[in-house]
Amino acid sequence: MLVLLPPSETKAPGGEGPPLDLGALTAPELTPVRTGLAEALVALAGDVPASRAALELSPKQDDEIARNATLFTAGTLPALERYTGVLYDALAVRSLTRAQRARADRRLAVGSALFGLVAGGDRIPAYRLSAGSALPGLPTLRALWKPALGPVLAGVDELVVDLRSGSYAVLAPVPGAVTVTVLSERPDGTRAVVSHFNKAHKGRLARLLATTTAEPGDVVRLRTLLRRAGLHVEHDGGTALTLVVPAH
């Protein structure tokens, strides 16, 4: 099972790992695109106003530009520790046992605007680049990633659970992947799409999928696994699941 997570705008600072080695990341066939983007991002960091415009940053976020300038020299962290925010707080990888963490590193991967795909244990520096960013002189990120990343994801020969947000999913859709929509249900039975807590629920779901010893091979077995874990999951056929949670 491969669980695809969205990245986060916020990143943990620092890192004691060796500098970025693009060729050592998962799916080395993506190295050419990664290299082009990383080099463009470093070059762009030399022009602060242009960086602000391309990355949609305010002057108060100039430290993000400084991070991009040191992409190839900064210390690194495992991807699951680099990304922060609501989803990753709920995932809480630092609280996993050694065996659970090894499973998480193997099963969890992050869809990244800069790297395309990074496994949970891949070591990366802090950076700033979003799915909707447009770097001067380069095609759109979707135009760059779809022909390179699409075949990589399509070639995964196990169940793929795609928890990426829409802007990252379109960079390289995965045919046949299981998707999960989170709905909140009010006491009167009415439902609404969860927005604020969506990431937290997906983080907890990712933690469950990362730590279970089960190996669901299809959407039906995955549905059964989630229900046994006490989750209210609905399945109307196809590869889409709906996670229903009580309204806050």
Rank of each mutant, 00 (worst) to 15 (best):
P18E: 10
P32G: 09
P139E: 07
A154F: 10
L37K: 08
A177C: 11
S51Y: 13
V118A: 12
A200C: 08
A177T: 00
P147N: 09
K202C: 09
P139W: 12
G237D: 04
G238A: 12
A53L: 07
V42F: 06
G120M: 15
A143S: 07
S51R: 01
L25W: 09
N198K: 10
V182K: 11
A126W: 02
G36R: 14
A45G: 05
R98Y: 13
N68V: 09
L159C: 03
Y83D: 08
D89H: 05
G116S: 07
L226E: 10
G137H: 05
T211G: 09
L231V: 11
A206L: 10
L205Y: 13
L226G: 12
R67V: 00
L77H: 08
L22H: 13
V48R: 14
G85M: 02
L41A: 06
L30P: 09
Q61E: 14
T76N: 06
A143I: 07
G15R: 03
S133A: 15
D105T: 07
R227Y: 12
V110I: 15
E29P: 00
A206E: 11
S95I: 00
V48K: 07
T224Q: 11
A27E: 13
V42E: 10
P173Q: 06
L159R: 02
T239Q: 12
H201M: 13
P151I: 04
G111H: 01
G116P: 13
V180E: 12
A169M: 03
E9F: 12
T190K: 14
S167P: 01
A192F: 01
G189V: 03
L144Y: 12
A54V: 04
Q100P: 08
L80K: 13
P6I: 14
L22T: 13
E29N: 01
A53V: 00
D162S: 04
S133R: 11
E56I: 00
A69Q: 04
T84Y: 06
L41R: 03
L20R: 05
A24E: 14
S184C: 01
E158G: 10
A12V: 10
P246V: 02
H232R: 04
M1L: 07
G166T: 11
P13R: 02
A38V: 14
D236T: 12
L209S: 08
A113E: 07
A200M: 08
L208P: 05
G166H: 10
V219Y: 04
G111Q: 05
P136A: 04
R164I: 01
T76H: 05
Y88N: 01
N68C: 05
L37A: 10
A177N: 06
H235Q: 04
P18S: 09
V233M: 12
A154C: 01
G217Q: 05
